[in-house]
């Protein structure tokens, strides 16, 4: 599903690479934690998958497509198959829960009948039934992140990228967020989650890829956050 082959990314005006000869494979339906300190290259990894950045060398394949050969014109179609969740939720403050989720479908031109059918379903999936008409500022952080996950998942993407989704949320609420991510993963969606949260990684017992200074220092199936001694 996601295939990095010897990928190096150096940002302009920086001599140290953000990613340094990274090769990694993520299969369909996998759940992968991307761990490592700040600046280790986790976000760059996610941005490369979305083709928001281009690698300096190496090849990236996402959903069977070579990103280097994907024309700019087709990038939006790639992004429709990838959902994204961020630490800061990125909801539209002037739209309610339903409208925020529907927005993702409206802007890719889905018919209204379809939107009316699938949006309530996905709101229920993330556990926000009955709150469809709340505004984002009336919701707790955990609930706002659920809205963001509903928006990311409403178009049934093949891949869900989560960049520290629990970074702004207390540990108790984080468990609920992880349950939703797990539920999404069980529908067959590949999930890649970048995180600092050791407790979550340890409790989930999923594959862990650790980055340090842009290099993969560990790739463990059923791993934990810290070094396995």
């Amino acid at each position: 599903m996601i295939h990095f082959d010897n990928v190096t990314k150096v940002y302009a005006n920086q001599n140290r690479p953000a990613l340094d000869h990274v090769s990694v494979d993520v299969d369909k339906g996998e759940f992968v934690f991307l761990v490592g300190p700040s600046g280790s290259g986790k976000s760059t990894f996610l941005r490369l998958i979305l083709k928001e950045e281009r690698p300096n060398s190496g090849a990236i394949h996402v959903a069977g497509k070579d990103l280097a050969r994907l024309s700019n014109f087709k990038v939006p179609h790639l992004r429709r198959r990838i959902g994204c969740v961020f630490q800061d939720f990125r909801l539209l403050p002037n739209k309610n829960v339903y409208e925020n989720v529907a927005f993702a479908l409206e802007v890719i031109g889905k018919p209204r009948r379809f939107i009316r059918k699938v949006v309530p379903e996905v709101i229920e999936l993330v556990g926000l039934e009955g709150k469809a008409h709340r505004m984002p500022d009336e919701l707790s952080g955990g609930e706002q992140q659920r809205v963001a996950m509903a928006r990311a998942f409403v178009n049934r993407p093949m891949i869900l990228l989560a960049d520290e989704p629990t970074g702004n949320i207390d540990p108790a609420t984080s468990i609920g967020i992880m349950k939703v991510l797990d539920r999404i993963n069980r529908t067959g969606t590949t999930v890649v989650m970048a995180t600092h949260d050791a407790a979550i990684v340890d409790s989930m017992r999923k594959r862990v890829v650790e980055l340090e200074d842009g290099k993969i220092v560990r790739d463990q199936s059923r791993g934990v956050y810290g070094q396995a001694y």
Binding site: L50, F73, P76, H77, L78, R79, R80, R81, I82, C84, R90, L92, F103, A104, V107, I108, G109, R151, N155
Partner: peptide, 10 residues
Amino acid sequence: GIMRLVGASN
């Protein structure tokens, strides 16, 4: 930003 993210065409 969100439109770009969810794959709205240019």
